[in-house]
């Protein structure tokens, strides 16, 4: 089994960095707002749910989800490329990671998109 020959790794590298930067920003926003920093306080369903139902937050969370999935799975893929030398095995793992990514994306999406408070 062969996997499609992508560019030498430029895009993988570029998006790993871009998603990395985005994740840091998104994480900070996420923590700041969810935990009501710097004051802090208890996180309750009543507080969080109305916010999650807005369109802005749905876009925010979807971006978050895509970035995290790409960053994590691409990272695993890099390690695999280092340590798995058989082309066939690499291809299997590549498609498995893609599938896993898709499944998780769909699971995330069906949680985020239809959410109503």
């Amino acid at each position: 089994m062969k996997f499609p020959r992508t560019s030498g790794g430029f895009y993988a590298w570029l998006f790993q960095r871009l998603t990395g930067i985005l994740l840091v920003i998104l994480l900070i926003i996420h923590f700041a707002i969810t935990h009501n920093l710097p004051k802090g306080g208890e996180v309750t369903y009543a507080l969080v749910a109305p916010r999650l139902a807005t369109a802005t937050w749905k876009v925010f969370d979807l971006t978050f989800l895509v970035c995290a999935l790409f960053h994590g799975l691409n990272g695993v893929w890099m390690v695999v490329q280092d340590y798995v030398h058989s082309e066939t095995a690499q291809a299997w793992i590549f498609y498995a990671l893609c599938t896993l990514g898709l499944v998780l994306l769909v699971l995330g999406a069906i949680t985020v998109i239809p959410f109503k408070a």
């Binding site: 560019s7 030498g8 790794g9 430029f10 993988a12 590298w13 890099m78 490329q81 280092d82």
Partner: peptide, 11 residues
């Protein structure tokens, strides 16, 4: 160098 065994492989 623009290869998966090239410049992008460096961690």
């Amino acid at each position: 160098i623009d290869d998966k065994h090239g410049v992008w492989r460096c961690h």
